[in-house]
Design a binder for these strands. Structure first.
Length: 267
DNA sequence: CATCAGGTGAAGT
DNA sequence: ACTTCACCTGAT
């Protein structure tokens, strides 16, 4: 068993923050969380002030501690905010416990190609469909996120997953990665600008999706995805321009706070 | 039934 | 270079 304070790691907030579509409450017990990453599954019990993971210290240290980015001090982010920025102060406080997960680049690439012009439940539904249809059985009715090879093998069946016009994008990316023509894992060591350029070369990946893949799949925490919510916040709260340069080096964390808080207020 | 949802790519200025 | 528009699909 591993215990973490919710002030430091809040699974519910992360599940609602839009960075991850494979964290769900258990159907039988709403205090139980089922967390999936690639082919891994972790269950957790939520208590008033803490979260308890069903996991040994060895297993937690081997994967999940880094996955939840527990090596970073997020309280330092809050201290670095502009004291005059009351919106950001409220957003950061409201978002306390959110972390930028270290998710898999392939899973993020496909997930965010799917995400365009879809709402969060629809994205989660599509991810669930392709996983259960083509991913490896992980037991208990759960399935791993499908590999590129598995999606290539899906063939026309990929058209039955509500992907709509995004289906050819997913199929093309799968072919590039499965064939070995594109090695997205080798991109881990590229500088930000080259990584961006490479991601944009995928059909169906524009600036916004590339930034999401950078932030959530490659842990480039300076990436700052601008979607309709962030744009709305910048327009209404910042008169159309946000002082990104002030938060150079961790702008992505600021983006998550703004998104999570702004969305909760239905701006 | 029209509109919208965490955009993108192609076509048109 | 910047602006406009169509686009699968499920939900409201």
């Amino acid at each position: 068993m591993i215990y973490e304070e919710k002030e430091k790691l809040n699974i519910e907030k992360i599940a609602l923050s839009g960075q991850c579509f494979r964290i769900r409450r258990s159907a039988g017990d709403p205090s139980v969380w089922v967390i999936q990453a690639g082919s891994r599954v972790l269950t957790a019990h939520e208590r008033a002030e803490e979260i308890v993971f069903d996991c040994s210290e060895t297993e937690f240290s081997a994967f999940w501690r880094d996955y939840f980015d527990l090596g970073r001090d997020y309280s330092a982010i809050e201290k670095a905010l502009d004291p005059a920025d009351t919106f950001l102060a409220k957003a950061a406080e409201y978002s306390r416990g959110i972390r930028i997960l270290r998710q898999d680049p392939w899973e993020m690439l496909i997930t965010f190609i799917i995400s365009q012009r879809k709402n969060i439940p629809a994205i989660a539904s599509c991810v669930e469909k392709i996983s259960s249809a083509f991913g490896t059985d992980a037991g208990d009715g759960l399935y791993a996120f499908p590999t590129a090879e598995q999606l290539v093998g899906a063939g026309d069946a990929l058209k039955n997953c509500s992907l709509g016009y995004r289906e050819p994008y997913v199929a093309a990316a799968s072919l590039l990665v499965a064939s070995g023509e594109t090695d997205i894992y080798a991109w881990e060591k590229l500088p930000d600008d080259e990584l961006t350029e490479n991601l944009l070369s995928f059909s169906g990946v524009g600036v916004k999706v590339a930034n999401c893949v950078k932030l959530f799949g490659y842990h480039r925490i300076n990436a700052f995805p601008v979607d309709v919510w962030i744009k709305r916040i910048i327009d209404t709260k910042y008169g159309g321009s946000f002082p990104l340069e002030r938060y150079d080096g961790f702008a992505g964390i600021i983006q998550q706070y703004m998104f999570f808080y702004g969305r909760s207020m239905h701006l």
